[in-house]
Nucleic acid binder design. Structure first.
Length: 578
RNA sequence: GCCCCGAUAGCUCAGGGGAUAGAGCGUCCGCCUCCUAAGCGGAAGGUCGCAGGUUCGAAUCCUGCUCGGGGCACCA
C-alpha cells in the first residue's frame, strides 16, 4: 500500500488533470499536514497558487478540484476554507484500515527505494590517538544515516577513513622501538603514548632526526617498520572497536579503510589530474584550481595535491578515496559526515571530481556538515583543565548518571538489569542529544537535559516503549488473549491522533534519506511518543470491552514497533522495563 | 577583505511559502482505589536579530545590514 501522503497527493494529481487538463498532473498539489485540527488532517494549498496562472478565483479553482476529486473511500470531509484552502478530514475507517496494513507490514509501510550503492564516510579517528567528543557527532550521525539508507533498501558501505598514515608515524614508530616494540599496554592510554612520543620528538633533536628517517623507511615499505606500524594500527582498531561497541555503533555497516589504503593510488591521481588538464605548478607545489573559489587575496584558490617536498596531503587522499568509491565500489552516491569547518574543502573536492570527469552528473556527492558540541559556557566542550574530553569517559558518565536514575526510580530491579538499562538509557540519551537538533547548529551539552524523562529525549521515547510493553506483559499475565488482534476501530480523538501520526512514518524516513537530517526522525518519534502518552491517559486498553481492547492492543503493538524501529534507525536501543 | 553557517518564549530547541508560530525546561494551578505519575491536562510567557523587496500569502524565499561562530596555500 502506498503511504498516506503519497496517496493523497496522487488523488489530487488525478483531480488536477481531470479539472484542468492532463498537463496539470505535474503540478504539485501542495498537500501538507494541517497545522490545526480545525483545518482537518491534511490540506491541499494548490488552488491559491494555481488561480493566477488559470486566471480564475482561488475558491472557484478549489471548487473545481474538489468536484473532480475521488474522495469516496478516504475522506470524511473535504472543505474549502479561507482564500482557497482545501481541508481534508480522513474517515476513521480509512485510518483504521491503513493502521492495520501498517501493522501487517514488516517494514511498517516504508517501501524500499530503488536500490543504490551508497558509500558513507564517517567517524574517522586517528590511529594512536584516543577518541574524544569531537568524534561523537560524526560517528553517531554517520551511523544513523547509514542505518536509514540501509532500511530503505540501499546497498550501504560505511567507511572509516582512519588517519593511519602521515609524518607523525615516524615519531610514533621510533618511540615504539625505543620502548621495546610491543604495545602490550591495552590502549586505554593511547594519548599518553602519543604525548610521550611527541615529548621525545620535541625535546631531543637526535630522536627527531631518527623519526624523520623512520618516515622515509615507512614510506619505502621497510619490513620491520611496516610491522611496527601495523602493530599500532591494530592496537588502535581494537580500542576503537571497544568504543563503537559501547556506543552501539553498527559495525556491520562500518569497515575500516584508512588513508594508507590509497598510498599506491596517489601518483595516479596526480597523473589523472594532469591528463584532465587541471594540474598546475605553484611555488613548487602541484595544485588544481577548482572553479568558483577565491583566496584571501582575491586570486583563485588552489587545492594543493602535492607539497613542495613531494609529500601528499588529505586532498590527494580524498581524491583517491573518491575514485575508489566511484570506480571500484561503483557507488552512485558518496556521503561525507564531517564537521562544518571542512565545508570548503569538500566543496573544492567535489568541484575537482566533477571537472576531472571522475564524478559524472548522475553521481551525488554530499557533505553532511555538523556544528560543534559546546560546554555550558557556550564554548567548545572541554574539561576544566582545557583538555579534550575523552569519549570513553563521556560514555562512563552517561552510564553512571543513568544508573543513578534507574536505581532511584526502580530500586527493586536486579543489579545486572539495572546496569543493562543504565547502558541503554545513558548511551541512548547521549546519542539522541547529538542527533535531535538540526545538525548544522552547535549544540550545548547538558547531562540533565539529555537524561530528562520529559521532553524530546531518548529516555522519554524509551519510556513510551516500556509502557506499551508493560501492557502486553500484564495482558499475558492475566491470560488476556489478543492473537490476530482484530480490526482497528478509531473512535476517540486520542486514537485518531495516534493513528495519523503512525501513518507519517514512511514520509519521514524518506525525508531523512533525502536531507540526511536525522533530527527529523527524532522530532517524529517525539511526536509519536507524545501522541501515545495522550492515548495512554485517555484510552484504557486492558479494561475495555473485547473488541475495543483488541483494537487498542493493535494500536499499541504497531506503536511499539514504530518506536523501536525508529530508535534503531538512530542507533538507539530499547529495553522492556526501566 | 572574501566565502560559509547561525540568530524564533527567561533557558534549550522544533517549525524552512499557507490560516491565530509550537515543544520541553523553568514559574503557577490541577490529575494516581485504574495497563510504569519516568506520565497527562491547564495558565502565563513571542515586534520570529534589523531594514527593504518578491508574493494572493513570508518566521520560511531574495538583497543589504547588525551580532555570533567558522573557513580562506603545502595540517586534517
Amino acid at each position: 500500500m502506498t503511504d498516506l501522503s503519497s496517496t493523497i497527493e496522487a488523488r489530487f494529481r488525478d483531480a488536477l488533470a481531470k479539472a484542468f487538463g492532463d498537463e496539470h498532473r505535474a503540478t504539485d498539489p501542495l498537500v501538507r499536514l494541517s497545522t490545526d485540527e480545525r483545518f482537518g488532517d491534511y490540506q491541499a494549498n494548490v488552488a491559491m497558487s494555481l488561480a493566477k496562472t488559470l486566471g480564475a478565483k482561488p475558491r472557484d479553482v478549489a471548487a473545481s478540484i474538489v468536484a473532480a476529486l475521488d474522495a469516496a473511500d478516504l475522506f470524511e470531509r473535504v472543505e474549502i476554507a479561507g482564500p482557497g484552502f482545501i481541508n481534508l478530514t480522513l474517515t476513521n475507517d480509512a485510518l483504521g484500515r491503513r493502521v492495520e496494513a501498517m501493522h501487517e507490514d514488516e517494514r511498517l509501510g516504508v517501501e524500499p527505494a530503488p536500490r543504490e550503492r551508497i558509500v558513507v564516510d564517517y567517524s574517522g579517528p586517528n590511529v594512536a590517538k584516543e577518541m574524544h567528543v569531537g568524534h561523537l557527532r560524526s560517528t553517531c550521525i554517520g551511523d544513523a544515516i547509514a542505518r536509514v539508507l540501509r532500511f530503505l533498501g540501499h546497498d550501504v558501505i560505511g567507511q572509516n577513513h582512519l588517519g593511519d598514515w602521515g609524518t607523525q608515524f615516524g615519531m610514533l614508530i621510533e618511540y615504539l622501538m625505543e620502548s621495546g616494540g610491543a604495545v602490550s599496554r591495552e590502549i586505554g592510554d593511547l594519548n599518553a603514548f602519543y604525548q610521550e612520543a611527541k615529548r621525545r620528538f620535541d625535546g631531543d633533536p637526535e630522536f627527531a632526526e631518527r623519526a624523520r628517517l623512520r618516515v622515509v623507511a615507512l614510506q619505502r615499505g621497510d619490513a620491520e617498520t611496516l610491522e611496527l606500524w601495523r602493530t599500532l594500527v591494530d592496537a588502535s582498531k581494537r580500542y576503537f572497536d571497544t568504543i563503537y561497541e559501547r556506543l552501539d555503533i553498527d559495525r556491520s555497516l562500518l569497515e575500516y579503510r584508512g588513508e594508507s589504503a590509497y598510498n599506491d593510488d596517489l601518483d595516479d591521481v596526480i597523473r589523472g589530474l594532469d591528463e584532465a588538464g587541471l594540474l598546475r605548478e605553484s611555488e613548487g607545489a602541484l595544485v588544481v584550481y577548482p572553479q568558483g573559489f577565491k583566496g584571501r587575496d582575491g586570486e583563485p584558490l588552489p587545492m594543493i595535491v602535492r607539497k613542495r617536498d613531494a609529500g601528499y596531503l588529505y586532498a590527494t587522499t580524498d581524491l583517491a578515496a573518491a575514485r575508489y568509491r566511484l570506480n571500484v565500489l561503483g557507488a552512485t552516491r558518496v556521503i561525507y559526515v564531517t564537521d562544518a569547518r571542512q565545508s570548503q574543502h569538500f566543496a573544492m573536492l567535489f568541484q575537482t571530481l566533477r571537472e576531472a570527469g571522475w564524478a559524472g552528473p548522475n553521481i551525488r556527492l554530499d557533505h553532511v556538515p555538523f556544528g560543534t558540541i559546546l560546554g555550558p559556557d557556550r564554548k567548545p566542550f572541554k574539561t576544566r583543565s582545557g583538555d579534550v574530553v575523552r569519549l570513553g569517559e563521556v560514555i562512563d558518565e552517561a552510564e553512571e548518571r543513568a544508573y543513578a536514575i534507574v536505581a532511584e526510580k526502580n530500586p527493586s530491579m536486579p543489579e545486572e538489569e539495572k546496569r543493562r538499562v543504565a547502558h541503554v538509557v545513558g548511551v541512548g540519551a547521549l546519542k539522541y542529544a547529538d542527533l535531535a537538533s538540526e545538525r548544522i547548529r552547535d549544540y550545548v551539552f547538558d547531562w540533565n537535559r539529555m537524561l530528562s524523562l520529559d521532553g524530546n529525549t531518548a529516555p522519554y521515547l524509551q519510556n513510551a516503549y516500556v509502557r506499551i510493553r508493560s501492557i502486553f506483559r500484564k495482558a499475558d499475565a492475566d491470560g488476556i488473549a489478543y492473537e490476530g488482534f482484530g480490526r482497528v476501530k478509531i473512535v476517540e480523538e486520542a486514537e485518531r491522533a495516534l493513528a495519523l501520526k503512525l501513518l507519517q512514518l514512511p514520509a519521514v524516513v524518506r525525508g531523512v534519506a533525502e536531507s540526511l537530517e536525522p533530527h527529523r526522525l527524532c522530532n517524529y518519534l517525539y511526536e509519536l511518543a507524545s501522541a501515545y502518552h495522550r492515548f495512554y491517559e485517555r484510552c484504557p486498553v486492558l479494561s475495555a470491552d473485547d473488541e475495543t481492547r483488541r483494537s487498542r492492543l493493535r494500536l499499541c503493538d504497531v506503536t511499539a514497533r514504530t518506536l523501536k524501529t525508529g530508535l534503531e534507525l538512530l542507533g538507539i536501543a530499547t529495553v522492556e522495563q526501566m
